[in-house]
Amino acid sequence: MFSLIINGERHKVDAAPDTPLLWVLRDLLGLTAVRYGCGQGLCGACSILVGSEPVRACQLPVSEVGGRRVVTLTGQDDAVSTQLRAAWIELDVPQCGYCQSGQLISAGALLRRNPKPSDADIDAAMSGNLCRCGTYQRIRAAIHLAARRLRGAS
Rank of each mutant, 00 (worst) to 15 (best):
K12I: 15
T19H: 00
L22G: 08
W23Q: 08
V24G: 04
L28F: 02
L29F: 12
G30N: 14
L31Q: 03
Y36K: 10
G37N: 11
C38P: 09
C38K: 12
G39Y: 09
Q40P: 02
G41I: 05
L42Y: 04
A45P: 00
A45W: 10
A45Y: 07
A45G: 01
C46L: 00
I48N: 01
I48T: 08
L49E: 09
V50R: 14
P54L: 10
P54Y: 03
R56P: 05
A57M: 03
P61L: 12
V62C: 06
V65A: 07
G66R: 06
R68P: 03
V71Y: 03
V71I: 15
V71Q: 12
T72G: 00
G75W: 04
D78A: 04
A79E: 15
V80I: 09
S81P: 03
S81R: 12
T82C: 07
Q83T: 03
Q83E: 15
L84C: 11
A86W: 00
A86D: 09
E90D: 15
D92K: 13
D92E: 15
Q95V: 06
G102T: 01
G102P: 03
Q103G: 00
S106D: 08
S106C: 15
S106N: 15
A107C: 12
A109L: 06
R113L: 02
N114K: 14
P117E: 13
S118Q: 05
A120T: 14
A124Q: 14
A124V: 13
A125G: 12
M126C: 05
G128D: 10
N129W: 03
L130Y: 02
L130H: 01
C131A: 01
T135P: 02
Q137M: 13
R138G: 07
R140E: 00
A141K: 13
A141E: 13
H144E: 08
L145K: 15
A147Q: 11
A147L: 11
A147H: 03
A147G: 06
